[in-house]
Simulated assay, not measured.
Amino acid sequence: MSYVVDFTTVSTAGLESSPVADALAGLRANEARYFKNKYDHVFTVVPAAEAKATVDWIHGILKEERDIVIASPPLEATEFEVAGIRMAYVFYESGLSVNVMYTLDDAGKRAVGFKLSDGMDVPEELASKFKFARQKSKLAGTIRGSYFTIKNEH
């Protein structure tokens, strides 16, 4: 069942099993606000079990590009296209959010982004590979993020 993420009234719906559910809900709402303001896109998520193709696509990119396997179980996912960019997100029980920005034009930018919910430790599988920068969010507190550029076709 899909859930439209409301960024005016932040809800932990679908994220209750996370030990940082409130912060993860804020992170998810922060993403929803960004896409609404920039692209007038309504950010809608589904349980990860209903988005197997999206989760598998992201996990395949992580494995092939950087030999990364996320240890935490995925809770929710979404995939959509805006302005010629294929976007995909997975929100994990640990509080991690992974997104793929994949420009459909061959000359466009393609990257994987990682965001950590406030209060979350850097996952072991990412700690030695990435430095995380901090940013403030009214909805999510302090978000730490990092990314890498996708080199291959996916």
Rank of each mutant, 00 (worst) to 15 (best):
W57Y: 14
V46I: 13
T12N: 06
V112W: 05
L15E: 10
E65L: 07
M1E: 13
H41M: 09
K63F: 05
R28F: 02
E76K: 08
T78F: 02
V112C: 05
P74S: 13
E124I: 14
I70F: 00
R144M: 14
G145K: 12
G108R: 04
E31H: 11
P123I: 00
A32I: 13
T142Q: 10
F132Y: 15
S137A: 11
G84T: 01
E79R: 09
I150H: 00
F114R: 01
T54N: 10
A133C: 08
A127E: 07
N152V: 05
E65N: 10
S18G: 07
E81K: 06
Y92E: 12
G108F: 04
A140C: 13
K63N: 12
F43E: 06
K63C: 05
G141W: 08
S97W: 05
F80G: 02
L104Y: 05
S72G: 02
T54S: 11
P74I: 10
R66V: 00
H154P: 03
Y147H: 11
I85K: 02
D22P: 03
Y147N: 08
L126W: 03
S97A: 14
K129D: 05
H41V: 06
A107C: 10
T142W: 06
T9L: 13
S72I: 00
Y39A: 11
W57R: 13
L139K: 11
A127C: 04
N99C: 05
V82N: 07
D118M: 12
K38E: 08
D56G: 02
S17N: 07
F130W: 04
A111W: 03
L104K: 13
S117H: 06
S2I: 12
I143E: 09
E81S: 03
K151L: 09
D67W: 00
H154E: 02
G26V: 09
T9Y: 12
A25W: 01
Y102T: 04
K138N: 13
F148Y: 06
G145R: 11
L24M: 08
I61N: 02
K36G: 07
S2R: 15
R110T: 05
F130P: 05
S117F: 03
T103G: 00
T12C: 06
E50F: 09
G84H: 02
G60N: 08
